[in-house]
């Protein structure tokens, strides 16, 4: 079904909920940081659940559930299924919800490794990760069907407001498919890889961040996930030519969006 057909049934004044799973809350802040747009939006929709902003009604029937964060616990799965059941449409926001996010790096660790990470992060032993919980951090789409996604770590206010606006118009939110290189060139930013020898994921990463890191002289970290038709093999070869070790290259790709299918390759 096309997005247009799918959205034909959207209520004239939709009910919206904003949910959080394992995440830093940075993507929800895209709403709160642009308070004027959020207030304007509230004249068009009813925001029934948004813990970060005030309203609480977690399992209310809604037209649109906006979900941030990844699924890490059995309790998460249960809650997610309830939310999905009560929502007509699900919009996932940010790297955690779409690819598992940075916490999905745990997927590469066994129990022992995870314990050593835990000891490295927390000053004393905690039960922050309980034995019965899931051994992986996974995206929302690994457990329930997702209608729309907007990538980023974090997403921007413009992305979020535009996506909701598009859904209200009954059309699919626009996807970022071009590379960060395009954003750099549009902004007149000198290529950090060519001019500074900085290894940069920009050529394989979807734009949408206005090339934030290259504008500050740093290589792209790949926060927005793979651009469409990313040639990972060619970029890895370039990193080798620049003198990066295989481990350094692996660390480049295993970061914000390590589970992104588009960022895999030799």
């Amino acid at each position: 079904m096309s997005a247009h057909d799918k959205l034909l049934g959207l209520a004239a004044r939709p009910k919206v909920a904003v949910h959080k799973f394992s995440s830093c809350d940075g993507c929800q802040l895209a709403f709160i940081n642009d308070a004027v747009s959020l207030l304007e939006l509230s004249t068009l929709v009813d925001i029934v659940h948004f813990a970060e902003a005030g309203p609480l009604d977690e399992f209310a029937e809604v037209d649109l559930a906006i979900i941030e964060g990844s699924v890490n616990t059995k309790h998460d799965i249960h809650r997610l299924e309830m939310i999905r059941e009560k929502a007509k449409y699900v919009l996932c926001i940010g790297a955690c919800a779409i690819t598992g996010g940075i916490q999905a790096l745990r997927n590469y660790q066994d129990e022992k490794g995870l314990l050593s990470w835990q000891e490295g992060v927390y000053p004393q032993r905690t039960d922050v990760i309980i034995a019965e919980d899931l051994p992986t951090a996974k995206p929302i789409s690994a457990y329930v069907p997702v209608d729309f996604e907007i990538p980023g770590c974090p997403i921007t206010s413009i992305q979020l407001v535009s996506a909701v606006r598009a859904i209200l118009f009954g059309v699919e939110p626009e996807k970022n498919v071009d590379s960060v290189c395009v954003s750099c060139k549009h902004a007149g930013i000198t290529c950090v890889m060519v001019a500074k020898g900085e290894p940069c994921l920009g050529p394989v990463t979807a734009n949408g961040c206005e090339a934030l890191c290259p504008s500050l002289g740093r290589g792209c970290y790949g926060c927005f996930g793979a651009s469409k038709y990313a040639n990972i093999k060619a970029l890895k070869q370039q990193f080798r030519d620049m003198g990066l070790t295989e481990q350094q290259i692996t660390h480049k790709f295993q970061f914000i969006n390590s589970q992104d299918a588009g960022l895999q390759g030799e």
């Binding site: 590379s179 395009v182 050529p203 651009s227 038709y229 060619a234 970029l235």
Partner: peptide, 9 residues
């Protein structure tokens, strides 16, 4: 095509 990133630069 095997070498090109198709980045558009």
């Amino acid at each position: 095509a095997s070498r090109c990133l198709s980045c558009g630069s």
